[in-house]
Structures are given as C-alpha cells and as structure tokens.
C-alpha cells in the first residue's frame, strides 16, 4: 500500500507540473503578451545562450561567493554572540527586544546606508548578508542555551564538572541542534539579503541579472535569473542538510 501511495503521488505531481507548463505555454502570446510571459521555449533558449556565453555561470559564481562568505561570517559571529548572551543569565529580557527589532529590519533597507558608508564594493554586500545571518543565528543560539534542561545541568554538576566543563561538555552539545537549525534558517535569509543587495547596489550577480533584464525588457533572462536563484537557494539547503545529516558526529546532536 505505501508503495502504491508514493507512485500515485509521483504521478499526480508530474501531471501537475506538466499542466503548469502547458498552461504557461498556451497563455504566453495569447492571454498574456510574450514580453510579460515569455514562452517556456524562449526561456530555455535564453538559458542555453547565457550558459554558453558564460554570463550565467559568472553571475552564479559571484552570487555564491557573496552568499557563502556573508553567511559564514554571520554564522561565526552569531554563534559567538548567542553563546555569550545566553550564558549571561538575565540579559535576555534586556537584549531580547533589541534582536527582535534587528530581525524586523529588512536587509534591503540597510543597502542604501551601507553603500553610503562603505561604497559600492563587495564589503557592503557581504556585511548585509552577514548581518541578517548573524541576527538569525544569534537568536536561535541564545534560545538553545536558555533551553538546556535544568536536570541535565544538575546531573553534570553532581558528576563533578566545573563551570567551564559544564559549558563545553553540556551547554555546547545541548545547544548544537539549535545552532544547526539557526544556520539552516540563515541560508534562506542570506539569499534574501543577497538579492536585496544585488538589486540596488548594481554591478554583477544573479540579482543584478534579474534587475537589469527588467530595465531592458529581456523577460526570458529575468525568468532564467529567478529560476537559477530558486535552484541555488534550494540547492544550498539540500547541500546543508546532506552535510549535517551525513556527518556522524553531527547527527548525534539531533537525537534530542
């Protein structure tokens, strides 16, 4: 029975995708103009052309570089901040609202001020991506430290651990699953920040490709850009899941 259910699901999902493509193909040029909705075939041709000319790969390379480094910096800073603030008992009521505020500040709104401060080089883009990752990872690390069960801390204390040992033998491993989750959520936010930065501080990258093609009414390129971005985003998360699930010493922290 379960096997049958999965096959049926696959059939329905395939049908759904095919129907979607068919509606898209028929609507383009009839219900909606080709400028607004280019034919799937045109999009495919555009993707092939830009892949051959190297523009697509170059844009992807630059965007991945930005998102990768920005995310990594944000993660390191976030774990450090989160552990520090989580350990200082009592401060969460004080810093909690600050991080709530920071989380609400959309990365795109920081782009203009970052350009004003740091020019239009790579630095402001990295900072914006790192910023939002930092906020997300800090909040979840802080939560993790705060949620370590009291009984677990007591068990460690009566087995003779010092304060410092409690920190790295109990609190760090107990917080690991929260950190891993924060890092994963951070990926999504890092991509939002990436697009934001590339939309406004224009020069290269996938976001620039999308924005530029709008100005030139090159809709097929715009669709190629959006699809690439979606693939990159989900690809990054899949890769992250694969790494964290397959690494044996990481997988034990998920058994909580």
């Amino acid at each position: 029975m379960p096997g049958h259910g999965i096959r049926r699901t696959a059939v329905v999902a395939t049908l759904s995708i095919l129907t979607g493509l068919a509606v898209w193909a028929v609507a383009s040029g009839t219900l909606v103009s080709e400028v607004q909705l280019p034919h799937p075939h045109a999009v495919w041709q555009e993707a092939v052309a830009k892949a051959e000319s190297g523009l697509l790969w170059e844009s992807i390379r630059i965007s991945l570089w930005r998102v990768g480094w920005g995310w990594a910096i944000g993660v390191v800073a976030g774990i450090a901040t989160g552990l520090l603030l989580g350990e200082l008992r009592g401060v969460d009521a004080v810093v909690g609202p600050i991080f709530e505020f920071l989380k609400g500040v959309a990365p795109i709104s920081l782009v203009p001020i970052m350009i004003l401060w740091f020019g239009i080089g790579e630095l402001p883009k990295l900072l914006i991506i790192a910023y939002i990752t930092w906020v997300v990872v800090t909040v979840s690390t802080m939560t993790g430290v705060r949620e370590v069960p009291k009984v677990r801390l007591r068990a460690a204390r009566c087995l003779g651990l010092s304060q410092l040992q409690v920190f790295y033998r109990i609190i760090l491993p107990s917080t690991a699953s929260y950190v891993l989750l924060g890092m994963r959520n951070g990926i999504g936010f890092a991509y939002i920040a990436l697009v934001s930065a590339e939309f406004i501080a224009v020069d290269k990258g996938i976001g620039f490709l999308i924005m530029d093609s709008r100005l030139n009414l090159q809709t097929p390129l715009m669709v190629v850009g959006i699809i690439s971005l979606g693939l990159l985003g989900s690809g990054s998360q899949l890769l992250y899941d694969a790494i964290t699930l397959q690494t044996p010493w990481l997988s034990r922290f998920r058994r909580q």
Binding site: T9, A10, I192, S196, S213, M222, G233
Partner: peptide, 26 residues
Amino acid sequence: NAWFDPYMRMANSTPAIALIPFALLW
C-alpha cells in the same frame, strides 16, 4: 498535496523579493 507540492517547493526556495521585478513588469 501532490498537486500543489511542487509549486510550494518552488515558492519556498525562491526569495519573494526576487519576484518584484516580475510583478512590476506585469
């Protein structure tokens, strides 16, 4: 679920901000 799931996955993995130029075009 099977019918809508592919679209949900696409929506979830593409930052909505990336669709702004598209919306402005439409």
